[in-house]
Design a protein around this nucleic acid. Structure first.
Length: 878
RNA sequence: GGGAGCUUAGCUCAGCUGGUUCAGAGCAUCUGCCUUACAAGCAGAGGGUCACUGGUUCGAACCCAGUAGUUCCCACCA
């Protein structure tokens, strides 16, 4: 049968993914096995797959597939997040293209469009994950805004309100004038921006004097309700108790004193605009100042401003500067760098704005969430995030959970005509509550529900519980079986948005952690270290990468250089390396396959390979143990690298080359069958990383039923191995490398057979592999001699000297130089060992095995020195 | 401003309890090979003052202090 020289990923991918799905290999239902569960960080319904998703989901798939092979009941729950702000923005934009304004629609009309949009585009990202090979239980796909999950959100709101954790209050919030909503602190990105500091003088009432303030936002002067100075500031002592006249509006406001003002910044005088600055707001509260909101929600000057009404704040900033100047109030301007907050979603400049919002008190709820991370009940990988986590949880702020949007779970609060409110699931319940509060409450009294919806994270924080219907039916079989889940794989950016809050919800509603381990991935960056983003256009299209390099190749590429918590500087060449690896495996298979045809047809290769078979068997045990250990520490890229080297170096470069039958020879059946077994084990080890090619080869390499799939095969055994055998083999291949090196440096072609000898008996164990050396190096012989041959090149290995019959090439000076260098190194080494052994404190304190090791180092070094010295002075003449 | 982390080969990173067969890996580079599985390959080689300075120790890439550079998080002085 003709097998193509290169692996064709598309064929395997199109064949096996549907096969796995149709045969229910991804499906999980509770049974007697140990569960292993991951809930996906639900991507936004608006999302399309980007490189971050690729990394994240590849990792999850690796973990889930390995758990499945370890015999666990592996369950990976997929789903999507309704993402209020992002989705609403998309729908608004879509409507705009159709010529429809959101403001022309009723809430229900708008939501109808939004749902249509979701049905149409909401599943794209999940389909893309399938291309990557994600083995999610698709029958369990959830959506954060489906009925059951929304019910859970509402119930939790009501419950937390009942417990007194939710309150309503006037607060300074981060207002997004484009999104027209409040956003949480975490969604504001601060950037340093070049701006102007305006020095403006205000007239002191009943005086000719002026007081000069500095501001970057002169448009807010219209909302000033005080000027503040430090009480200790000598410059202004004489003004204490006076009033100030705000320019343009000519409002008379008090001059107040507060230590908050730093004397040496600007002019030491601060204009106070409680409606538009968080610190001013606090000053306003403290000094009972009037609050004048001069901006409307869309960032234009409001009626209350009195001037420039309806004009954008940035336009007004320039205008008012001019007008102030004209009126003689502008003293000077200077360039100034200030930190400005931008909305993460819309990139609009955030306005601090006073508004009525709903808040969740965090201090008490956060306690168990902090404690259980600190005591390692929940482990973060890498551990360094524990610090960050603690810092945040110890200084946690109340969570503003209301959003001025329509797409999301509507807040279950109801207002009567006086503005009193109750929290209830339905209007009928709300009426009852009103009645309980007030007997006189009329049956036909008008009440209306809060217009706002809840923050998206207020639904995603329930995700690990709600996907198992843990609110709807707290004792159902699924939640009891799968919760707490095992591992969560997510980005550090949402450690607080999401991870911390899930932990909080877990303890509040299940009395238990939502997951045991959190693997925090890095950010995928481009070669220049920039974050990959759509706006920069520096992100490769994931599906194109998959087409180009195969899903397995891309998976390997993503994982190759991404230890937990480290950013991944992505480069397509990584995928190329992944593809090349797949091809290497493919060709190893081709080689083995070709042997099956030689079996019995020609004279068998009659070498005794028993020891080599044993070596590889032991090597597999040893490496599997290492790989298991790396997995247990979530060192996934290291586990991949170990597997990579096991396959490429140990199996392909050494094992296959050794057992490969010579030209015209047939392989021995037992060697062939052992090789197949080893290959199968290797495929299993690789399966979590490279699901497609391993499944394909699994079915090709041996006769097996189609239903016998590697995806559900048993993970290879690890365990006790003969380390001296492994060391003996290492010595043999070192000899091989040494001989090859000399061949190369002396330009002796491989077809020219060499004869190698060594003095005295070989070290025991090691000689068993001599035939390996003979075969791989094309030796005409490898035997012991009693006398050291004269004038031959030699190799030193484990205190034994091997001689090669290539007399003509010896460069004595060069050789002596090399030997001398090695001698010096070895002597220094011995010296340090002796120093240690001569140190009483070392000898008394070191563990016995370390001591023994040092003794061995000593004797080895001594033997080597002796040998080297003899090499330099072969006749004992000095 | 407060906090945390990082700095090891050209690149990306290991180095887990301090111990010179411990200075490592992969990629990249260089050299030689179209050797019947694979040129998406084979074989070989070169490459590092472990950021710097000092300290602790019999011994430091590893522990401590300081310095420099760098990244992230938190706060937000108009």
């Amino acid at each position: 049968m003709e097998i193509p020289k290169t692996y064709d990923p598309a064929t395997a991918e199109n064949k096996w993914y549907p096969y796995w799905m149709n045969n229910g290999f991804f499906r999980s239902v509770p049974d007697e096995r140990e569960p292993y569960t991951i809930v996906i960080p639900p991507p936004n319904v608006t999302g399309v797959l980007h490189m971050g998703h690729m990394l994240n989901n590849t990792l999850q798939d690796v973990l889930i597939r390995r758990a499945r092979m370890l015999g666990k009941n592996a369950c990976w729950i997929p789903g999507t997040d309704h993402a209020s702000i992002a989705t609403e923005a998309k729908v608004v934009a879509m409507l705009k293209e159709k010529g429809i304004q959101k403001s022309d629609l009723t809430r229900d009309e708008f939501l109808k469009y939004a749902w249509e949009w979701k049905e149409k585009y909401g599943g794209i990202i999940l389909d893309q994950l399938k291309k990557l090979g994600a083995s999610c239980d698709w029958e369990r796909t959830r959506f954060t805004m489906e009925d059951d999950l929304s019910d859970a959100v509402i119930e939790v709101f009501i419950d937390l309100h009942k417990k007194g954790h939710i309150y309503r209050g006037t607060r300074m919030v981060n207002w997004d004038p484009v999104g027209l909503t409040a956003v949480s602190d975490e969604e504001v990105i601060h950037k340093e921006v070049d701006s102007t500091l305006y020095h403006v003088r205000y007239k002191v009432e009943n005086s000719d004097e002026f007081i000069t303030i500095a501001t970057t936002r002169p448009e807010t002067i219209l909302g000033d309700t005080a000027v503040c100075i430090n009480p200790m500031d000598k410059r202004y002592f004489h003004l204490h108790g006076k009033n100030i006249i705000v320019p343009i509006v000519n409002r008379v406001v008090p001059l107040i004193t507060d230590e908050y003002v730093t004397m040496d910044f600007g002019t030491g005088a601060l204009k106070v605009t409680p409606a538009h600055d968080i610190n001013d707001y606090m000053l306003g509260q403290k000094h009972r100042l009037q609050t004048i909101d001069v901006l409307s929600p869309d960032g234009k000057m409001s009626d209350a401003a009195g001037y420039y009404i309806g004009e954008d704040r940035f336009v007004v900033r320039k205008k008012i500067a001019k007008d102030l100047d004209a009126a003689g109030h502008l003293v000077k301007t200077e360039p100034y760098k200030s930190n400005i907050g931008f909305s993460e979603r819309t990139n609009a400049v955030i306005e601090p704005k006073l508004s009525m919002q709903w808040f969740l008190k965090m201090d008490e709820l956060a306690k168990p969430a902090l404690e259980n991370v600190m005591n390692d009940n929940i482990r973060l990988y890498p551990e360094k995030f524990k610090n960050t986590y603690r810092h945040w949880m110890e200084n946690v702020h109340d969570w503003c959970i209301s959003r001025q949007l329509w797409w999301g779970q509507r807040i279950p609060a109801w207002y009567d005509e006086h503005g009193d409110f109750v929290v209830a699931k339905t209007e009928a319940e709300a009426r009852n509550l009103f009645k309980q509060k007030n007997n006189a409450f009329a049956d036909d009294a008008k009440i209306k529900q809060d217009e706002d919806v809840l923050d998206t994270w207020f639904s995603s924080w329930l995700w690990p519980i709600s996907v198992f219907d843990g609110f709807k039916d707290p004792d159902n079989a699924d939640i009891k079986y799968y919760y707490p889940t095992n591992d969560l794989v997510t980005a550090p950016e949402i450690l607080f948005f999401w991870v911390a809050r899930m932990i909080i919800a877990g303890y509040e509603y299940r009395g238990d952690k939502p997951f045991s381990n959190v693997y925090l991935t890095g950010i995928v960056r481009d070669k220049q270290g920039r974050k990959m983003s759509k706006s920069l256009g520096n992100s490769p299209e994931p599906l194109e990468l998959i087409n180009k390099y195969g899903a397995d190749g891309v998976r390997v590429g993503m994982l190759l250089s991404s230890p937990a918590g480290n950013d991944l500087p992505f480069d397509e060449s990584l995928c190329e390396q992944g593809r090349n690896f797949a091809n290497k495996i493919w060709n190893a298979f081709r080689l083995i396959q070709s042997w099956s045809e030689t079996e019995g047809k020609s004279a068998p290769d009659n070498r005794d390979y028993t020891l080599v078979l044993k070596w590889f068997e032991q090597k597999l045990l040893a490496e599997t143990e290492i790989i298991n250990d790396q997995f247990s520490k979530y060192r996934v890229s290291e586990a991949l690298m170990s597997s990579y080297k096991l396959v490429w170096d140990d199996f392909c470069s050494w094992y296959l080359e050794i057992v490969k039958p010579g030209m015209g020879q047939a392989i021995q059946p037992e060697v062939y069958h052992a090789t197949i077994q080893y290959f199968e084990s290797l495929m299993k080890l690789l399966h979590p990383f490279m699901p497609f090619i391993t499944e394909e080869l699994w079915h090709n390499i041996a006769e097996r039923k189609e239903s016998d799939c590697i995806i559900v095969a048993t993970w290879p055994e690890a365990g006790k191995h003969d380390s001296s055998l492994l060391a003996d083999f290492d010595a043999a291949i070192q000899l091989v490398s040494g001989i090859r090196n000399i061949r190369k440096s002396k330009n002796i072609p491989n077809r020219e057979a060499l004869h190698v000898t060594f003095k005295g008996g070989p070290e025991k164990g090691h000689e068993g592999f001599h035939f390996v050396v003979t075969k791989l190096c094309n030796l005409s012989g490898l035997e012991s001699v009693t006398e050291k041959p004269a004038d031959q090149l030699s190799i030193l290995l484990r205190n034994h000297e091997y001689f090669m019959n290539i007399t003509g090439f010896v460069d004595h000076e060069e050789e002596r130089k090399k030997i001398n260098e090695e001698l010096i190194y070895t002597k220094n080494f011995l010296e340090s060992v002796m120093k240690k052994l001569g140190n009483e404190r070392f000898v008394t304190n070191a563990k016995p095995d370390i001591l023994a090791l040092e003794q061995k180092k000593k004797s080895d070094a001594e033997a080597k020195i002796e040998l080297l010295e003899r090499k330099l002075n072969p006749d004992g003449v000095r």
